[in-house]
Lab assay of single mutants.
Amino acid sequence: MAASAHGSVWGPLRLGIPGLCCRRPPLGLYARMRRLPGPEVSGRSVAAASGPGAWGTDHYCLELLRKRDYEGYLCSLLLPAESRSSVFALRAFNVELAQVKDSVSEKTIGLMRMQFWKKTVEDIYCDNPPHQPVAIELWKAVKRHNLTKRWLMKIVDEREKNLDDKAYRNIKELENYAENTQSSLLYLTLEILGIKDLHADHAASHIGKAQGIVTCLRATPYHGSRRKVFLPMDICMLHGVSQEDFLRRNQDKNVRDVIYDIASQAHLHLKHARSFHKTVPVKAFPAFLQTVSLEDFLKKIQRVDFDIFHPSLQQKNTLLPLYLYIQSWRKTY
């Protein structure tokens, strides 16, 4: 089996927390979720979201995140109150960019949308954001926290390059993509939290790379249903696996070995980020709550012996909000 052949990389499970039942964490995340308004986002309300009498641009960002990046939404709820709305805006910006690729039928249209967001970032730093909910909220975040323009532009530029429907040539190319998107998002989150620390940035770099790799793995069944495969070609070739094997949902050992190798790289990034947690300011830990969902996925895929098409991998963990709150309460990542 794939797991038994390579099992030495995987460390002990961390979500089991001995003695936790003896201490009762304060009510927090679930209460916040219940208090949030929840009407559906419609095209009509989106168009009017920044106008008078609408929910408001902040509510639009929150709803977009809740629907399109639920794990990011849950993590954002546990940030300090003064930072929450800015991170909602930042993550909503990322969602807007991420959904361009799947929402257009022609690359030219995707490039036009990316050009809109490039100009939007430029206009935000000229205090002239367009009348668009996410743009307005992002402008507020930039003004409030003096966010670095370079990180925002890196996210747009990398998403634009990724409009080509090509597999990553190697794991390094996937890591570079993750660094310029997910890690950049974390650098900006640290700025919102008021953290300027080399060790925190180092952790953000590795956690962002782990996030990018896990996202690529999780999306494999969806991409396969659209006749697309984006997994690193070098690892596929190493194990003699073709793109057609993934399109046919082949579950042979060599296919699972490909998934094992890729998942192991995410695991190593996560492990390395945690190896120097004592040197990272505690104030930075809330920015890294996504490690909970990353670890949850890596454990699940290990349990199914790296069968990327196993139905259990597509099921939401209903206990994730609780695990996130516990992680926040324990002040760790």
Rank of each mutant, 00 (worst) to 15 (best):
A47I: 08
A47Q: 09
A49M: 11
A49K: 15
A49G: 05
S50Q: 06
G51I: 07
P52A: 14
G53M: 13
W55H: 15
W55Q: 14
G56Q: 15
G56F: 09
T57D: 12
T57K: 15
T57Q: 12
D58T: 12
H59C: 11
H59G: 15
H59M: 09
H59P: 07
Y60H: 08
Y60I: 06
Y60F: 06
C61R: 02
C61K: 03
L62S: 06
E63V: 06
L64G: 03
L64K: 13
L65W: 02
L65I: 13
R66D: 02
K67N: 10
R68F: 14
D69I: 00
D69K: 02
D69W: 08
Y70I: 08
Y70D: 03
E71M: 08
E71K: 02
E71N: 11
E71W: 03
G72T: 08
G72N: 11
Y73S: 00
C75K: 02
C75P: 04
C75G: 07
C75M: 13
C75Y: 07
C75W: 09
C75R: 05
L78N: 09
L79H: 14
L79K: 05
L79R: 02
A81H: 15
A81K: 15
E82K: 15
S83N: 14
S83F: 14
R84I: 08
R84G: 03
S85M: 11
S85W: 14
S86L: 02
V87R: 00
F88P: 02
F88R: 07
A89T: 04
A89F: 00
A89G: 07
A92W: 04
A92F: 02
F93P: 01
N94A: 05
N94E: 04
V95I: 14
V95H: 04
E96V: 08
L97S: 08
A98M: 05
Q99N: 14
V100C: 10
V100F: 08
K101D: 11
K101L: 14
S103D: 15
V104Q: 11
S105R: 15
S105C: 14
E106A: 12
E106G: 10
I109T: 14
G110C: 12
G110T: 08
G110Y: 07
G110R: 07
G110W: 07
M112F: 14
R113I: 07
W117L: 06
K118G: 05
K119E: 11
K119M: 05
T120S: 13
T120V: 13
T120P: 02
T120A: 13
V121S: 00
V121R: 04
E122H: 13
E122G: 09
D123N: 10
D123E: 11
Y125E: 04
D127I: 03
N128C: 14
N128M: 13
P129V: 14
P130F: 03
H131M: 14
H131D: 12
Q132I: 11
Q132C: 10
P133Y: 06
V134E: 04
V134Y: 02
A135M: 04
I136F: 13
E137V: 02
L138S: 00
L138P: 02
W139Y: 14
W139V: 03
K140F: 02
A141D: 01
A141C: 15
V142F: 04
K143F: 05
R144V: 07
R144F: 06
R144H: 06
R144A: 11
R144W: 04
H145M: 04
N146I: 05
N146P: 04
N146G: 14
L147M: 07
L147S: 01
T148Q: 15
K149E: 07
K149S: 05
K149F: 06
R150A: 06
W151H: 06
W151E: 05
L152K: 02
I155K: 01
I155T: 06
I155C: 13
V156W: 04
V156K: 00
V156L: 13
D157Y: 11
E158V: 10
E158G: 14
R159D: 03
R159I: 05
E160Q: 10
E160V: 15
K161N: 11
L163F: 14
K166S: 13
K166A: 15
K166T: 12
A167W: 15
A167Y: 15
Y168T: 09
R169H: 13
N170G: 14
I171K: 03
K172C: 10
E173F: 02
E173Y: 03
E173H: 08
E173C: 06
E175K: 03
E175T: 06
E175W: 01
N176V: 13
N176W: 12
A178T: 00
N180H: 11
T181E: 02
T181P: 01
S183C: 10
S183E: 02
S183K: 03
S184I: 14
L185S: 04
T189V: 13
L190H: 02
L190D: 00
E191A: 07
I192A: 14
I192V: 14
L193I: 10
L193F: 08
G194Y: 01
K196H: 10
K196P: 03
D197K: 03
A200V: 04
H202T: 05
H202C: 05
H202G: 04
A203H: 01
A204R: 01
A204E: 00
S205G: 08
H206C: 05
H206Q: 04
I207T: 03
I207K: 00
Q211C: 15
Q211D: 13
Q211T: 15
Q211K: 11
Q211S: 15
G212N: 02
I213W: 02
I213E: 00
L217Q: 00
P221I: 10
Y222Q: 14
Y222P: 06
Y222H: 15
G224Q: 15
R226Q: 14
R226W: 10
R227A: 09
K228P: 03
K228D: 09
K228S: 12
V229F: 10
V229R: 03
V229N: 11
V229Q: 06
F230R: 07
F230C: 11
L231R: 01
L231T: 00
P232Y: 01
M233G: 08
D234Q: 06
D234C: 01
I235R: 08
C236R: 03
M237Y: 12
M237G: 11
L238C: 12
L238K: 14
H239V: 00
G240K: 11
G240T: 06
G240A: 10
G240H: 14
G240Q: 15
V241Q: 03
S242C: 07
S242K: 04
Q243I: 04
E244P: 03
D245V: 07
D245G: 07
D245H: 07
D245Y: 06
F246A: 04
R248E: 04
N250D: 09
Q251V: 14
Q251S: 13
D252F: 14
D252I: 11
K253G: 15
N254G: 15
V255C: 11
V255W: 10
V255M: 09
R256I: 03
R256T: 07
R256A: 10
D257S: 12
V258R: 02
V258T: 11
I259H: 02
I259T: 09
D261G: 08
I262C: 12
I262D: 03
A263R: 00
S264Y: 06
S264N: 06
S264R: 08
Q265S: 09
A266R: 00
A266C: 06
A266N: 01
H269F: 02
A273D: 02
S275W: 06
H277M: 07
K278V: 15
K278R: 09
T279E: 13
T279K: 13
V280P: 02
P281A: 05
P281G: 04
V282A: 12
K283M: 11
A284N: 00
A284Y: 00
F285M: 14
F285W: 15
P286C: 10
A287G: 06
L289G: 07
Q290F: 09
T291R: 02
T291W: 01
S293W: 14
S293Y: 09
L294S: 08
E295Y: 08
E295L: 08
D296Y: 07
F297C: 05
L298C: 05
K299F: 09
K299V: 10
K300D: 10
K300G: 08
I301P: 00
Q302V: 06
R303T: 12
V304R: 05
V304S: 09
V304W: 04
D305N: 11
F306H: 05
D307H: 05
F309S: 05
F309M: 09
H310I: 01
P311A: 10
P311S: 10
P311Q: 09
P311E: 08
S312T: 10
L313F: 07
Q314C: 10
Q314W: 08
Q315K: 09
K316R: 09
N317Y: 08
L319A: 10
L319D: 03
L320R: 03
L322S: 05
Y323R: 12
L324M: 08
Y325H: 07
Y325A: 11
Q327Y: 11
R330W: 08
R330Y: 07
K331F: 08
K331T: 12
T332R: 13
Y333A: 01
Y333H: 03
Y333I: 06
